[in-house]
Amino acid sequence: MATIVMLGKLADLAQAATIDLPLPLSKPLDWEGLKAALPSALAEALDDPRIRVAINGALLPNKAKLQAGAGDEIALLPPVSGG
C-alpha cells in the first residue's frame, strides 16, 4: 500500500486529500501505473507538465522516474498560484 497525497486543485479533482493505493508485489509503482490507478479526471490533470511529484518528502526532478514501493508516500503538487 502507498499513500497518495493530493494538494490544491488535485485534491478537489480526487474528492479527497489522500488515497491509499494497493501496490503490486512484483514491481514498484511507476508514473504510468500511478496514473492508471487514479480516477480519470485526476489522471488527466497529471499530464500538466507543471505538476510536481515528491516521494517520501523528496521532490523528484522527473516525475516519469517515479518508483514507489509499499509504505511510500507520493505527493502530487499542483503549480503554486497567488501573487
Rank of each mutant, 00 (worst) to 15 (best):
33 G>S: 07
33 G>W: 08
50 R>D: 14
36 A>K: 11
47 D>K: 00
46 L>E: 11
38 L>N: 01
24 P>I: 11
41 A>P: 14
25 L>Y: 00
29 L>Q: 02
38 L>V: 03
49 P>I: 05
50 R>C: 08
34 L>V: 09
39 P>T: 03
40 S>F: 03
47 D>C: 02
48 D>W: 09
51 I>N: 08
48 D>F: 13
27 K>H: 04
28 P>T: 08
53 V>Q: 10
50 R>I: 11
50 R>S: 15
48 D>M: 04
34 L>M: 01
42 L>F: 02
53 V>H: 11
52 R>L: 06
40 S>E: 15
52 R>W: 14
42 L>V: 03
47 D>R: 09
48 D>Q: 14
31 W>A: 13
38 L>Q: 06
27 K>W: 07
36 A>H: 09
49 P>D: 14
51 I>T: 08
32 E>D: 13
51 I>Q: 04
55 I>G: 07
51 I>Y: 13
39 P>D: 00
33 G>H: 07
55 I>V: 14
38 L>S: 06
28 P>R: 10
47 D>G: 06
54 A>V: 14
49 P>G: 02
47 D>W: 01
51 I>R: 10
52 R>A: 05
42 L>Y: 00
24 P>Y: 00
36 A>N: 11
43 A>G: 01
26 S>C: 01
30 D>G: 05
33 G>F: 00
36 A>D: 12
29 L>Y: 00
40 S>L: 15
42 L>S: 00
25 L>A: 08
44 E>L: 14
35 K>W: 04
43 A>C: 06
25 L>T: 05
45 A>K: 14
24 P>E: 11
32 E>Q: 13
24 P>C: 00
39 P>M: 03
31 W>E: 12
28 P>Q: 11
35 K>G: 03
45 A>I: 06
34 L>C: 06
46 L>W: 01
38 L>T: 05
44 E>S: 15
46 L>A: 05
24 P>H: 09
42 L>T: 01
32 E>F: 02
32 E>L: 08
35 K>S: 04
50 R>Y: 15
26 S>G: 05
31 W>T: 09
47 D>F: 06
34 L>N: 02
24 P>A: 13
34 L>R: 03
37 A>K: 08
26 S>F: 00
39 P>R: 02
47 D>S: 08
50 R>K: 13
51 I>W: 10
52 R>G: 02
28 P>F: 11
30 D>L: 06
42 L>N: 01
44 E>H: 10
50 R>P: 12
37 A>R: 10
50 R>L: 15
48 D>K: 04
25 L>H: 03
47 D>M: 07
50 R>A: 15
52 R>H: 10
26 S>H: 07
50 R>M: 12
46 L>G: 05
50 R>N: 13
32 E>S: 09
38 L>G: 00
30 D>M: 07
45 A>M: 09
55 I>W: 09
40 S>V: 15
30 D>H: 06
28 P>L: 10
47 D>A: 04
51 I>V: 13
51 I>C: 08
47 D>T: 01
34 L>T: 02
35 K>M: 05
40 S>A: 10
26 S>T: 07
33 G>K: 04
30 D>T: 04
43 A>P: 06
47 D>L: 03
46 L>N: 04
31 W>V: 13
53 V>M: 12
